[in-house]
Design a protein around this nucleic acid. Structure first.
Lengths: 209, 209
DNA sequence: TTTGCCCTGTTAAAATATTAACAAAAAGCG
DNA sequence: CGCTTTTTGTTAATATTTTAACAGGGCAAA
């Protein structure tokens, strides 16, 4: 396997989540069209994605749920695990902390950071929150690979730079401000306002046509 | 103009945000490469997007900031405005409320909903929060077009169905559970866990190659 | 004026992503 | 057994998105 498309990676993550649900329900096998229906995609796309990762199901019974979960894990998880921190413990930071709590085994939340001295020093969802002063030192100390930015837009550029300098490997930026990182740092950005405006646009045009 | 690509719409929203900043800084004209650098894209892409919406800049001075803002507004905004509600006032719901507060003129937040009786009845960021009982009635009463779902995954299916039945036109689903809606309702889904796992994957593979 | 540079707008090509099409294999059934 | 149904795996076709290529216009400096 050489080069998985971005979109396939995203779907693999979602397949796994769906499969884990199936497993919990005692389902041992699943067909491509079942998996497809749980997402918003076609059976062909499921089969194609699985082809790309080299998994092959049994012809009449579909895919083995357990096996597939493990294989997807091999593909997208990092064997040694990766450590994550949330920078900015506003509402969004909290939300992410909660979502995250004890879900993944291969990604572990290690720290959070906030400028507010009332927050720094406390723990949220069992994860310690540090002051911004400690950003660089804790990232190195705790060997944090991925930073999730949920700070105000004003400080986005600054925080990104500090993360990069501290040796972070990946950034997930939820700030509406786009940041620049060197090539060896993977950057993913998502902007809620843009999504909302997109929905608005298509609501508008749906009504027109 | 016939059929703008999804990606172009997203970028238009971001161009506008960048342009508004420029305007606030007193900048009257901007080059495609400047606008490009603010996002993570190339100047060609900017020019192509603007070509698609039929805007044409002045040759040596670039694009007129004010004009472009207005034109983008004409494209993506709905003249009469659209009303929005947040369903589920957990941390994520709050975060969205705050982000949103007084930003857009053509999208107005009208209501929020929560099952928790302590939350229902209060106001957040100046927007009233209603109990889930009122979901259908308030959506009709306040003429709400777009619903942002920030409820727990368990109730996603149910909430989506109720929104659709109440006559909503667009849904932005932040639940990790994918929902089904009829074709006349525009659906946009975003899953934070998937994004995080995607970052993890590319951090892993960056290290490998 | 003329040369060179730096823009834009647009068409063409390349890269990505999705959808269609279909052979082949297993199972059930008459 | 042969026929039908169902489902996979894969290749081919289509659609979408990005990137490259380049003509042409205006400004500035020589």
């Amino acid at each position: 396997m050489k080069h998985l498309p971005h979109k396939t990676i995203e779907r693999l993550s979602q397949y796994r989540r769906a499969l884990l649900l199936c497993l919990a329900n005692g389902k041992t096998h699943i067909f491509s069209h079942e998996l497809a229906k749980m997402q918003h995609i076609t059976a062909v796309q499921v089969r194609r994605d699985l082809m790309l990762i080299g998994y092959t199901g049994t012809l009449r019974k579909g895919y083995n749920v357990k096996e597939l979960i493990d294989l997807i894990g091999n593909i997208i998880d990092c064997e040694e695990g990766l450590n994550v921190a949330v920078i900015g413990m506003g509402n969004l930071g909290h939300a992410l902390m909660n979502y995250f709590k004890g879900k993944r085994t291969k990604l572990s939340m290690k720290a959070s950071f906030d400028t507010n001295p009332e927050k720094a020093g406390k723990s949220y969802s069992g994860i310690p929150c540090y002051s911004f002063d400690k950003l660089e030192s804790k990232i190195k100390e705790e060997n944090i690979h991925i930073g999730i930015m949920t700070v105000p837009a004003d400080s986005a550029t600054d925080v990104a730079e500090r993360l990069v300098n501290a040796g972070i490997k990946g950034i997930l930026n939820y700030t509406p401000k786009s940041v620049n990182v060197p090539k060896h740092v993977y950057l993913e950005e998502y902007d809620m306002i843009t999504s909302l405006e997109k929905v608005a646009f298509f609501v508008k045009t749906n009504g027109e046509e």
